[in-house]
């Protein structure tokens, strides 16, 4: 099997939105999330707090559904969750939200064990007024099998 053409993948897939979801954030679940993480301040743990909001990393928990676009090429190796990142722009509060997910980046790193392919999927989170609250990125890494290696 020949190595994947990363430049062609980038040209075809970066920026492609493949999922949009509308959902409701529940205050009790947000508070439970915060307490389980070890938060102690009322603005994260008490839904009655006038400034109640989720810790920013709550955005990562909202990345559900399809992990990659439909018809995205089969990757030549086992994918593993390499990391997550959040950019927070405004507080995440209970109520209706919308998320839009797109392929944000595709890149490679080469080490002693061969080439690793990184796929970065970004979910952008908005409130019902259209305010962009946060981006949550998931990085999946695939160790590419050397040519000729059995699957």
């Amino acid at each position: 099997m020949s190595a994947l053409d990363i430049e062609a993948l980038r040209d075809q897939w970066i920026g492609v939105q493949f999922e949009e979801r509308a959902f409701e954030l529940d205050a009790a679940a947000m508070a439970e999330y915060a307490k389980a993480c070890g938060e102690v301040a009322g603005l994260y743990t008490d839904p009655e707090d006038p400034d109640f909001q989720a810790p920013p990393t709550f955005a990562s928990s909202l990345q559900r559904g399809r992990g990659l676009p439909e018809n995205f090429p089969q990757m030549p190796g086992l994918g593993m969750d390499a990391g997550k990142a959040v950019e927070a722009f405004a507080p995440i509060r209970p109520g209706p939200k919308t998320s839009r997910t797109h392929m944000h980046d595709i890149y490679t790193k080469t080490g002693r064990s061969g080439r690793m392919i990184f796929l970065v999927v970004r979910m952008a989170l908005y409130d019902d007024a259209g305010t962009h609250l946060a981006n949550a990125d998931t990085r999946v890494v695939i160790r590419e099998k050397p040519t000729g290696e059995e699957a």
């Binding site: 915060a34 993480c37 070890g38 938060e39 102690v40 810790p55 920013p56 990393t57 709550f58 997550k84």
Partner: peptide, 13 residues
């Protein structure tokens, strides 16, 4: 992993 991420935020707060 998202829980470990949440631990980091709690530590900072």
């Amino acid at each position: 992993g998202i829980m470990s991420q949440g631990f980091l935020c709690a530590m900072i707060h």
